[in-house]
Design a protein around this nucleic acid. Sequence first.
DNA 1: CATACATGCAGGCATTTGCCTGCATGTCAA
DNA 2: TTGACATGCAGGCAAATGCCTGCATGTATG
Lengths: 106, 106
Amino acid sequence: MDDDKVFKALADASRRMLLDRLCERNGQTLGQLCETMDMKRQSVTQHLGLLEQANLISTVRRGREKLHFINPVPLYEVYARWIRKFEEERLNLLHDLKQELERKQT
Amino acid sequence: MDDDKVFKALADASRRMLLDRLCERNGQTLGQLCETMDMKRQSVTQHLGLLEQANLISTVRRGREKLHFINPVPLYEVYARWIRKFEEERLNLLHDLKQELERKQT
DNA sequence: CATACATGCAGGCATTTGCCTGCATGTCAA
DNA sequence: TTGACATGCAGGCAAATGCCTGCATGTATG
């Protein structure tokens, strides 16, 4: 997985909205997704392109249409790499803070 | 929580590296963090500023030094809002895909 | 075939981003 | 107090980003 592409893809509100739309109803076409997005079709295409490069969505052509499907795997990997890790450290944080504050002040 | 600030803060490799450094050793000063970052101090300051605005780190002044501590809460909220949600949908995705493909092709 | 429809591709442009340099402020220690 | 150290703040600049317009390609349907 390319961490950077995933995070950069998620860093835009329009792209997160597209993921939400696909979560509500998976497998939508570009045209369908455009209906709920307040921008031109070509801009939506660019956003979907970044999401696809980050492997957050997969596409299937059906005739002249292109269907878009969410791929949750990169999100899970982000969780495993970045979130669960910090969760494990959570209990140590207050201890670290207390220790550090006391280190040079006593 | 401000979703957008958190995602934008995480969208930069340098800022993710800073979080990693703080995960290894919490409560470091700006100067300490600069030692492992290949850029000027002022740039590191900017990155830390964005992380702090996203509430991903908290700071404490100790004399002329400024200590930086990770705050894992926004990460957990990202997980709850964006990752766990899609995880729950995970099992439905293949079903949706199959259904959509069959919808107009039969 | 001819037309309409769904999408692809290229280029322009204003804004944001990330890094820099230069200087100012605040704090410790002799 | 004075000099050294840690950080804060402002402005410049090249690159990346996000949105647009215009046109090209491919596909279904009469």
